[in-house]
Amino acid sequence: MVSAIIETSGLTRNYGDICALKPIDLIVPEGEWLSVMGHSGSGKSTLMNLVGGLDRPSNGSLRVGGEDLLALSEDGLARFRREFVGIIFQQHHLVPYLTAVENVMLAQYFHSVPDEAEARSALERVGLGHRLKNRPGELSGGEQQRVCIARAIINSPKLLLGDEPTGNLDHKSTVMVMELLKELRAEERFTVIMVTHNQEVAAWGDRTIYLDDGVLVREERMKS
């Protein structure tokens, strides 16, 4: 019996009158690759942000990795994020004035101590060994997203969150990024939650849940 890394019950998030997430009960076993699908505005990002400790729920309970996120202070959530979670966004959010390797080292710096050799080998693992000293502006979309992946995994997170990480990429880059994530997951054994609009991308996971207007309407297990 695999233990649950994420457990929510009655998880709700309101923005004023807007109910972005209706009460949701969700259990994610450790090591699972979960895809999240739904229309734009259905609450996918809201769910990701709550699980990743970037946002606080309006109601319900939320345990991630044994930690009650509602009980954590702002700095406690920051510590949770740097120690437990790796996040990849749709828009490759990199610090524009830092090079690829410095962007990866930034995550190390907030986590503990920057280690340039380690950051370099993480970039080599995502196939960017030749782009270490380039700034984000000099990299293609797919390359930037791979820098984000290197940054997300550098502190060996237990949970990797991707909010439409391939949303801005062409087919070839998408496949490359997904292959890479699959490889890394095989080595590092982290849990993946991946928001996507793309049925094909969702199919890389073990299970897909569907959100509609803040409600978990359906789930689907992939045949392995």
Binding site: L54, R82, I87, V95, L106, F110, H111, R151
Partner: peptide, 16 residues
């Protein structure tokens, strides 16, 4: 602000 938000997202606390 995007740069600061990003630093926070990857785990920078208030002191950092």
């Amino acid at each position: 602000s995007p740069e600061i938000a990003l630093m926070k997202a990857v785990g920078a606390d208030r002191l950092q």
